[in-house]
Design a protein around this nucleic acid. Structure first.
Lengths: 118, 118
DNA sequence: AGAACGTACAACCATGTGGTTGTATATATG
DNA sequence: CATATATACAACCACATGGTTGTACGTTCT
């Protein structure tokens, strides 16, 4: 099994920021539901320029939510479900922190430290 | 049981954007782990001005992740774990979309529609 | 070779973000 | 009443975002 090292603050920033846009969420959804697709195939779906969609895909790639592979003149974009799972894992951890307040098992999770500034 | 209407695109944008900052994630974590706290109590934790922390709390409030209550001259901030659950629910749904590709149960989830532009 | 296609990238613009300082206002305390 | 505390909010700054158009370059097709 692959070791899932916890994401850094910067990686989490990029991940949640990437998810904070409806077009990008839709791209991820389509890639999860269907086949990998070229950037222009994706772009055809949306009411904006090719360059705009290309920038969205670039942000998704920086966030680790998708990866690109060269195929002739096309770049095939595929989703990376692992990153979704990692984002969900953080939210689950937050919920557990809250839930643990009502049980005696308060030592389930480490105490948080304030983030260091960039 | 409370009816959880699905969040709109705008609400999801604000929710994920609010989570896309380490200071805000830390504020949420502390509020989930401990007692509700005044804005200045929260601000004391961080290496930035009171006004900066206040703006972070305002963004968390807009995202529905925390709520504020007047108590004398203080504003007591408390976390809203429900919103965390709603964010996690979306990510879970995305994972299910992917997983359903490998089963015959592809009708678990509705087909996505491209988001309408603002 | 030449044209069309797919992509990348730069420049630009309007707006938002993350921080600052300063000022105003309500509440508590001497 | 006077002063300190807690908050809110405006103005400002540097930089990021989300969009545009234009240009360049590799790949595919005639």
């Amino acid at each position: 099994m692959v070791v899932r090292s916890p994401l850094t603050d910067d990686e989490l920033d990029r991940l949640f920021r990437a998810l904070a846009d409806a077009t990008r969420r839709d791209i991820v959804t389509r890639l999860l539901a269907g086949e990998p697709a070229s950037v222009s195939t994706l772009a055809a779906r949306y009411d904006m320029s090719f360059a705009a969609v290309q920038k969205h895909v670039a942000m998704l790639e920086e966030a680790g939510l998708v990866s690109k592979e060269s195929r002739g003149r096309e770049r095939i974009v595929r989703s990376n479900p692992e990153r979704i799972a990692q984002a969900r894992a953080l939210l689950f951890k937050l919920e557990q922190i809250w839930i643990s307040r009502f049980s005696q098992l308060d030592d389930v999770l480490a105490d948080p430290k304030p983030p260091t500034r960039k």
